[in-house]
Amino acid sequence: MTAAVTAAGATVAAASNLRPLLEVRGVTLQYKTPEYLVTATYRVSFDVYRSDRFVLLGPSGCGKSTLLKGVAGYMPPVEGEMRLNGQAITRPGADRAMVFQEFDQLLPWKTVQGNVMFSLLSSGKIKDRRQAEEQALRYIEKVNLTKFRDAYPHMLSGGMKQRVAIARAMAMEPEILLMDEPFASLDALTRRKMQEELLQLWDDIRFTVLFVTHSIEEAIIVGSRILVLSPHPGQVKAELNAHQHGHSSIGRAEFTSLQRRIHDMLFSDRIEEQESKTHG
């Protein structure tokens, strides 16, 4: 236990010398619906370091997806700033490859290989078709879909579609991978398998990922660090470490207690909310 603490302390000390890869400073994001101007997040700050598996966790309405869209460059912040490698984020770009929850994120008119190549060629990351093909196949192999390289998306299962989306984003070799509840539409068994595969890939390539989820369990398994957000509007509630947990630690005392801690954090909000409603 002491060893673990010193090791963690050493990492913190080493990390403080480094500049964070992604800096989010006091970011307020708002969007308009036909009737309301909704404040999705309010003065949210966090830092993501290289090779982090950084999870944004919170109940629906905490603005976690909006925050991810902000980082992706789809939404300019009303207040605050976001920097990637010190450069302010102003628009969408291929250095922040996105994986969405929806299965329709694949281009239905392209094969598996075509989809992965599309990202490389259309972004101008690789100009040469042959090279793009090689790169695409390398990443398709990493997600175990080599047999399906010539299949069209409509022939694939949900889990396979998400794997293609992950391969497509990773083939870009982006600075940071943005994943918006990528496994939320999958069945429980497939979801678990995909989480394992993602962790294996991380062991293999050591990418940086910003991962949005509403599942506490998924956050602890997938994440190395968890940003807990409270809803309406999204504000930072806590930032926790979860790097020591994986699938193998499910059910262990530490895992369960972390799960309980986060659960209580998110749940206390609801009680406060209800109280303020009944009293106010």
């Binding site: 869209k69 969405f100 929806e102």
Partner: peptide, 25 residues
């Protein structure tokens, strides 16, 4: 919206965005 965001994620704008994303979709 997802497909639109995918297109913009790879930096497609203007005519290329229309030709490579909107028309086939």
């Amino acid at each position: 919206d997802t497909l639109r965001m995918v297109g913009r994620n790879y930096g497609l704008t203007g005519v290329r965005y229309v030709a490579l994303i909107l028309i086939p979709a």
